[in-house]
């Protein structure tokens, strides 16, 4: 805003200045809008999201979802196995003929997620102390740790899974390793941020006592950050369960392989049977973990 000259009306000057700013803002906003529309049109074109394809595709979506829904016959719903040891079509038993097989795979999926979360948490605790700028033993260690964590969380689990399936063979081990690495990257970054917000006073206190770096972290920092770490690790566990349900798509164990198989080769009620189990598992674990996290935060808030 130019300085007010004698003889000028300050109100008019202010209004003029305001109008000027608004004009500028309007132009930038119009430009952004134009960019947005252009981007939208471009992405519609590139992803071939054309009306004719949509018109052909949408009915098929409904057709497909219609075909994978279970068809119940209400009188047979709770029917048990018949003389030949089969469930009659239209019963829940028929829908979930492979229930125990699915359940075993879901169990494996959950164990994979637990193992991966435990290892990833342990690794990222150590890495987060190295990566935090205020705690790192040397600046280059912090930089190296940060780059490493960025790499780990930048590559999706399923890509790591692809690589580990090649390296250690088909099976849950590849999935666990993949999820561990990705989760270490994600948790390590979050933990490092928590560390950087921790008070340095206790750390100074322990330095003055003659403590080693590890002792300073263990006694000076860990007690401060542990509640946050736990909460983040629980939250990551929820994500890891989802991840371990899909790494099987590339052969890395869990329910994923079955999911892939069922969806790829059948379009009947088996698809919804597996999907429903996965959704129930994931939702139940979300719920439990959320409870635990709230209990944790609540306990903290009371203190």
């Amino acid at each position: 805003m130019p300085p007010i000259q004698p003889g000028q009306d300050p109100v008019a000057l202010f209004e003029a200045h305001r109008a000027e700013i608004r004009r500028q803002k309007l132009w930038i906003n119009l430009l952004l809008l134009g960019g947005f529309v252009a981007m939208l049109l471009w992405s519609i074109d590139v992803s071939r999201f054309w009306p004719d394809r949509l018109a052909a595709g949408v009915p098929r979506i409904f057709e497909y979802f219609g075909s994978v829904l279970p068809s119940f016959q209400w009188d047979l719903l709770f029917e048990t196995r018949n003389a030949e040891g089969r469930f009659p079509p239209g019963s829940i038993g028929f829908w979930y003929n492979d229930f125990w097989k699915y359940l075993a795979l879901i169990w494996e999926t959950i164990l994979m997620a637990i193992t991966a979360t435990l290892i990833a948490t342990a690794l990222s605790v150590v890495l987060s102390f190295l990566a935090a700028r205020n705690l790192t033993p040397a600046p280059w260690v912090s930089t190296a740790a940060r780059r490493f964590l960025e790499f780990c969380r930048g590559v999706p689990e399923i890509l790591f899974a692809l690589i580990f399936v090649f390296a250690v063979g088909i099976g849950p081990l590849a999935g666990i390793l993949a999820i561990t690495i990705h989760a270490t990257g994600a948790l390590g970054k979050l933990f490092a941020e928590v560390n950087e917000n921790a008070s340095m006073k206790p750390v100074d206190g322990l330095t003055a006592v003659g403590g080693t770096w590890a002792q300073r972290m263990r006694y000076g920092v860990l007690p401060q950050v542990l509640p946050n770490f736990t909460s983040y690790a629980l939250w990551r566990f929820e994500i890891n369960v989802r991840a371990s349900a899909v790494v099987g798509f590339v052969g890395a164990g869990g329910i994923g392989a079955e999911l892939n198989h069922v969806i790829s080769f059948y379009s009947d009620d088996r698809v919804t049977a597996v999907l429903l189990l996965v959704v129930l598992t994931v939702t139940a674990i979300d719920l439990m973990s959320e409870r635990a996290r709230h209990a944790l935060i609540g306990k903290e808030a009371l203190k």
């Binding site: 979506i61 497909y64 399923i158 349900a245 899909v246 999911l259 892939n260 969806i263 790829s264 996965v278």
Partner: peptide, 11 residues
């Protein structure tokens, strides 16, 4: 990814 596969089957 699962949704992806489902929609590949559908469309």
């Amino acid at each position: 990814v699962v949704w992806g596969l489902v929609f590949v089957r559908a469309v």
